[in-house]
Nucleic acid binder design. Structure first.
Lengths: 105, 105
DNA sequence: TCGCGTATTCGTCAATTCACGAACACTTGG
DNA sequence: CCAAGTGTTCGTGAATTGACGAATACGCGA
């Protein structure tokens, strides 16, 4: 099987990361992954089709915001790479996540 | 003449703001505006055409990141609305701006 | 090995984005 | 009033995005 691509920390690009966060669906996914690390793709609440959701996860993964690891039964476990991203761009992701959870409550 | 539209603070939308920041050109403009408040549109270093640049300023303005004010000779003075944006989404913009200036030096 | 569950890939499609030049609008100095 | 300077608007075109269903790939339990 094909290994999933993940950018190295030194290759992270701020514009790419912001673009990944700029979509409401992806921002929601990112918050959920950070709230409940290790969730599989099928466990997210959404109205979107599987293929659309898969594409969004791909954007998050290739931007470096999320690490996807193979789980049981061909599932993907989604882990936040927030700490790694913060090492390159301090406070950016944490501030975004806080703003979302804050305005949502 | 037509007054330029500016969103109210309570109408700011995080996804819209992140989208505005996600373009490298606009991010650069935003940094420049914050570094040197009051610059006119024509004083930014760029290879882009006037119409393209004008469109980018419009995105920044309509997202709420920048206030454009009429200056002498039909020019536009560009002011950051960073403080206002921060009141809705604390630390988001400041963290982004710091990351850009930091990685650029 | 067969079938089920999970997720990706592919092809398509409508909508949006980003770029440009030409034309227009507005202010100001001569 | 005219010309120069500054930006916006409009029409165009190429590229990207975001959505979907159908088909495919993979792991695992029976």
């Amino acid at each position: 099987m094909k290994p999933l691509f993940h950018p190295r920390v030194e290759d992270l690009d701020l514009s790419t990361i912001l673009h990944a966060c700029a979509d409401p669906t992806r921002l929601r996914l990112l918050v959920d992954i950070n709230t409940e690390p290790g969730k599989t793709c099928g466990t997210f609440e959404t109205e979107l089709s599987k293929s659309t959701l898969s594409a969004h996860f791909k954007v998050l993964r290739e931007s470096g915001l999320v690490r996807q690891e193979l789980g049981p039964g061909n599932s993907r476990l989604n882990w936040p790479r927030t700490a790694e991203v913060q090492s390159r761009f301090p406070d950016v992701i944490s501030a975004i996540l806080k703003s979302v959870t804050r305005s949502h409550s």
